[in-house]
């Protein structure tokens, strides 16, 4: 690991630590928001502490992203194998078609089918998050040079060995980029999940909008923005280290 990379990870680590400290010390928020919005009688959303809200939020994203990664990567791998090649055009078509759908519309469509709460939110996040991962898995695997795959076969590697030892490592940074896009979109869409009762960091914002309490809005918006930026930076870090690690 180069000096520059080490410094970058150190900064990221400090940012994560600062975020964790900030969300577990509610008095900081109470003081700051109380000072900024002295006209509000109450500045902290009473439903739950920020730590609980962040954990709720992360749970939504984690469940859906775990399913997304498993199914999305498998689908992408299958579509680039001889057995699934035939389906590559339709899968690419559906992913780009689906990308045009707004995430909120997917969330809204899940309600008539699955009702309110955790289930429709997770289902919508899963479906929408699938697209970037499938797309990037296909793009990453397709970009692996055919010569290299030929060499791997020449060395006596089986198809599975070639996939896991040559193709996936070479495609890893592109796949992680898909994962990053998918997770960042999911963190944002999970905010709207609060409207259909899935909890998370959207709930203080929605409560603030309904009760016209500006402090609640900031209490939800600030940690949500930090969470999304942190997740993005962490995954970009992993992506970059895979890129340089391959050389």
């Amino acid at each position: 690991m180069s000096h520059r990379q080490a410094r970058r990870w150190l900064i990221l680590l400090l940012m994560v630590a600062a975020f964790a400290w900030l969300i577990s010390n509610m008095w900081v928020w109470e003081t700051a928001l109380g000072y900024l919005f002295s006209q509000e009688a109450q500045v902290i959303h009473p439903r739950a502490s920020l730590l609980v809200l962040v954990l709720e939020h992360l749970r939504l994203v984690a469940i859906s992203s775990a399913m997304t990664v498993f199914i999305g990567v498998s689908l992408g791998v299958w579509a680039t194998r001889p057995g699934g090649r035939e389906f590559l055009p339709i899968i690419t078509d559906i992913t780009s078609f689906g990308q045009t759908f707004p995430p909120v519309a997917i969330l809204a469509l899940a309600v008539p089918m699955l009702g309110f709460g955790l289930l429709p939110t997770v289902a919508a996040l899963f479906l929408y998050g699938l697209l970037p991962i499938v797309r990037n898995t296909i793009a990453g695997l397709d970009a692996v040079s055919g010569d290299l795959v030929g060499v791997a076969y020449g060395m006596g590697m089986s198809r599975t060995q070639t996939l896991f030892r040559v193709e996936v490592p070479l495609a890893a940074s592109v796949i992680i980029a898909g994962l990053r896009i998918s997770i960042v979109i999911n963190i944002g869409t999970a905010m709207i999940g609060a409207v259909i009762g899935a909890g998370g960091l959207g709930s203080p914002i929605i409560a603030g909008l309904v009760q016209d309490n500006l402090a609640y809005i900031i209490e939800g918006a600030l940690p949500a923005a930090m969470l999304a930026v942190l997740a993005d930076q962490l995954l970009t870090g992993i992506e970059d280290s895979l890129k340089t690690g391959g050389d």
Binding site: G188, M191, L214, I218, A228
Partner: peptide, 21 residues
């Protein structure tokens, strides 16, 4: 531009409300 794109939409809308009010 990258950071602002990352911020969730509901949060970005939220940020603008207090200063504009």
């Amino acid at each position: 531009a990258n950071i602002t794109q990352t911020v969730p939409s509901l949060a970005l809308f939220g940020f603008l409300i207090p200063p504009l009010s």
